[in-house]
């Protein structure tokens, strides 16, 4: 189990080109939960007047973190893809601050995983954004 999770963590950093482009780092993973940090980066600014990170980059952070939580579920999925993702933006992320996302895969069926996630910038108790998503769940082939 631990080896599998360590492998997932390594793959997230090395194997997803767009996660690398955003310099995402997977901080914790296990038991259907994941935590990923996105450092502040001037290239990701959506509103030059304020320096606030674009919602699209926050969406990518949430989607990546949610997918990691699914992969870390105890049912040991072989793969996952996003079916639907809703993001609520509570407030703008503070310019200059990294954003930390935490996702929980709270329920799985034979073929679907349900996930909740929140993003924080460490500035206030209120999250920057929250997300709910449904993901496909590819079951591993059963060994003979």
């Amino acid at each position: 189990m631990t080896e599998r999770l360590a492998e997932i963590a390594r793959q997230f950093i090395e194997a997803i080109p767009h996660a690398r482009a955003l310099r995402l780092s997977l901080e914790t993973i296990g038991a259907g939960e994941a935590e990923i940090v996105m450092p502040y980066d001037a290239r990701l600014v959506g509103d030059p007047a304020t320096g606030v990170i674009h919602g699209g980059a926050v969406s990518t952070l949430m989607d990546t973190c949610s997918g990691a939580a699914v992969m870390a579920h105890a049912s040991a999925p072989a793969g996952t893809a996003t079916l639907d993702l809703r993001i609520d933006y509570m407030r703008p992320a503070a310019p200059g601050k990294s954003i930390r996302a935490r996702a929980t895969c709270y329920h799985v069926t034979r073929s679907i995983a349900f996930v909740r996630a929140e993003a924080h910038d460490g500035e206030a108790d209120t999250p920057v954004a929250s997300a709910t998503g449904a993901f496909t769940l590819e079951r591993a082939e059963r060994p003979e």
Binding site: A15, I16, P17, H18, A19, R20, A21, G46, H54, G55, G56, A57, S59, T60, L61, M62, D63, T64, G67, A81, T82, L85, I87
Partner: peptide
């Protein structure tokens, strides 16, 4: 662009990139 990939095995665009593209288009 190669850096937009989220699943290198398929390969497929990152779901977050798709979301960002749609949100940018809307804004």
């Amino acid at each position: 662009s190669d850096m937009l990939i989220g699943n290198p095995v398929l390969p497929a665009l990152h779901g977050g990139v798709t979301a960002a593209f749609l949100e940018t288009t809307a804004i």
